[in-house]
């Protein structure tokens, strides 16, 4: 099966449909038409831009450029994790905890996958590295932001309980352990759901893409399995790290609950 190329005409059909949806939203006074159009235009521009960037990157295969793009992706993901927190850490910690955890989990697991599983030469071949990393970051990002948000929000809500435990002489570790467990559980639910639904309820995006691009379905399935498993591990490790660092940061040297470190 050959890859069927999409022309401007095919894309404008989809675009007109979005315009129609915006018109319906306006007619029904849903009030989301502006947001819808802005988001649609944003995604069109972002995707065209990354298409162009990747085209150049693939042509050059320059390690420095690849590293730069990877770091850019990481910092945007770190920012997104921070922006989704209702109560986030002040200062550099806000963006730092998420970014560092994603750096540790996503980067190490992507590199591991490229070296041991896919075994491309060199391992930083951008055709493999960038999409894999993107998928890792995109998915761990949501797990991480849910887990961190859950942690800080619940610590804020349950201040009285945490301090009651401290007053009884509990360690900080013990006093926050239940909130920490719940935060981790919440962070892991999306990927557990994704694994449970994979292939039965939903055909994951990557597999769909490969099939549309002409890959044999079984090959696409194998790649998808690898990706899902790696994402699960990445999200899990990243969330554990982020929640641990975050919960430690909620207390100071004298084991006082420091909600003033949140905003």
């Amino acid at each position: 099966m050959e890859l069927i190329q999409l022309g401007p005409w095919d894309l404008s059909v989809a675009a007109v449909l979005v315009l129609a949806l915006a018109a319906i939203s306006w007619r029904l006074r849903l009030g989301v038409e502006v947001q819808l159009l802005v988001a649609a235009i944003r995604s069109i521009l972002q995707l065209l831009l990354i298409g162009l960037v990747l085209k150049t990157l693939f042509a050059q295969s320059n390690p420095i450029l690849i590293a730069a793009l990877s770091l850019l992706m990481l910092s945007i993901a770190g920012y997104e994790v921070m922006a989704r927190q209702q109560r986030r850490f002040k200062g550099l910690w806000g963006v730092g905890i998420g970014s560092l955890s994603m750096f540790i989990s996503s980067f190490s697991i992507t590199i591991l996958a490229l070296k041991l599983v896919v075994q491309v030469e060199p391992w930083y071949t951008p055709q493999y590295l960038i999409p894999l990393l993107g998928m890792m970051l995109g998915n761990t990002m949501s797990g991480m932001s849910i887990a961190l948000d859950n942690l800080t929000y619940n610590a804020w809500q349950q201040r009285g309980t945490i301090e009651a435990k401290l007053m009884l002489g509990w360690d900080w570790d013990h006093a926050i352990s239940e909130i920490r467990r719940n935060a981790l559980r919440a962070g892991l639910i999306p990927i557990i759901n994704a694994m449970a639904a994979a292939g039965v309820v939903s055909l994951p995006g990557m597999m769909t893409g490969q099939i549309l691009a002409g890959s044999p379905p079984l090959e696409a399935a194998k790649y998808q399995i690898m990706i899902l498993l790696l994402i699960a591990v990445g999200t899990g490790l990243g969330a554990i790290f982020a929640v641990w660092v975050g919960s430690r940061r909620l207390f100071d040297q004298r084991q006082r609950l420091r909600l003033d470190r949140l905003r």
């Binding site: 401290l166 009884l168 002489g169 360690d171």
Partner: peptide
């Protein structure tokens, strides 16, 4: 701190239960 807080126990106005 946990040892100190065990020896100097504080009872707040409102009790918390988890």
């Amino acid at each position: 701190p946990p040892d100190w807080r065990k020896r100097v126990g504080m009872l707040p106005a409102e009790s918390h239960w988890w």
